Computed example of a mutant assay.
Amino acid sequence: MPMAQPHQTPAREVRLFRNNRSQAVRIPVEFELPGDRALISREGDRIIIEPVRQSTGLLALLATWQPLNEDFPTVEDKPAEPEDIF
């Protein structure tokens, strides 16, 4: 078993199983990831599984903004003047 880093949880042996046409592994609670989606990648013999970070898209950003309590100046809306473009 690999030597654990001081800030890491020690490695633990788990069993692999088949789920339809995919190989699967049950993740012990001490390794549980947040959410319901993950990214998986390979580095040599290592399989790396990491949580999908929720992106803060425009809608999430706008939801955090407070309404402005400002009076905006009245803008005179004049009709457009005809213009000769030829």
Rank of each mutant, 00 (worst) to 15 (best):
E70A: 12
V29N: 03
R12Y: 00
R12F: 09
I27L: 15
R12N: 01
R21Y: 05
R18A: 08
L39Q: 03
L62D: 12
E76K: 00
N69R: 12
D71E: 13
F86M: 07
Q54F: 09
I48F: 09
D71P: 00
I47P: 01
R26H: 04
L62K: 09
P28H: 09
L62I: 04
E70R: 04
R26N: 07
R53L: 09
G57W: 14
L16Q: 04
V14T: 07
P2E: 13
D36Q: 12
P67A: 01
E30Y: 00
P34T: 08
R21M: 12
T9Y: 09
N69P: 00
M1K: 05
P6M: 05
G44N: 03
Q8N: 07
Q5C: 09
D71N: 11
E76Q: 03
R18K: 12
A11R: 01
L62W: 01
P73I: 09
E50W: 01
Q23L: 15
D36G: 15
A38R: 06
Q8R: 02
R26M: 12
I40M: 10
F86L: 12
I85W: 08
A11F: 14
H7D: 10
I27R: 12
P82C: 07
R15H: 02
A4N: 02
T9M: 14
D45P: 07
I47H: 03
R18P: 00
E81P: 06
M1E: 14
E83L: 13
E81M: 11
P51H: 08
E81L: 15
P51M: 08
E43R: 11
N69F: 13
S55P: 02
P82E: 15
R18V: 07
V25K: 06
L62Y: 04
Q5W: 04
A80V: 13
P51S: 03
D36I: 04
M3L: 07
D84K: 01
N19S: 04
P73S: 00
L39K: 11
Q5D: 14
A60D: 15
Q23M: 15
P10T: 10
L62A: 07
P82A: 05
N69W: 02
G44L: 03
R18N: 09
E70F: 03
E43H: 11
Q23F: 15
I48Y: 14
I48L: 15
A24D: 13
M1V: 08
E70T: 13
I40E: 10
S41P: 02
G35M: 05
L16M: 06
L68I: 06
A24I: 14
D77E: 06
G44S: 03
S22K: 06
A63R: 04
I85R: 06
A80E: 14
T56S: 06
Q54P: 11
F72D: 13
I49T: 10
E70M: 05
I27C: 10
T9D: 10
E32Q: 13
S41M: 11
Q5N: 02
G35T: 06
N20M: 03
P6T: 07
P2D: 09
I49A: 08
R26V: 14
L59F: 14
L58S: 04
P2C: 01
I47Q: 00
T74N: 03
V52W: 10
A60W: 05
G57R: 10
R53T: 15
L33F: 14
V29H: 10
A11K: 05
R37F: 14
H7N: 04
L39P: 01
P10Y: 00
R37C: 13
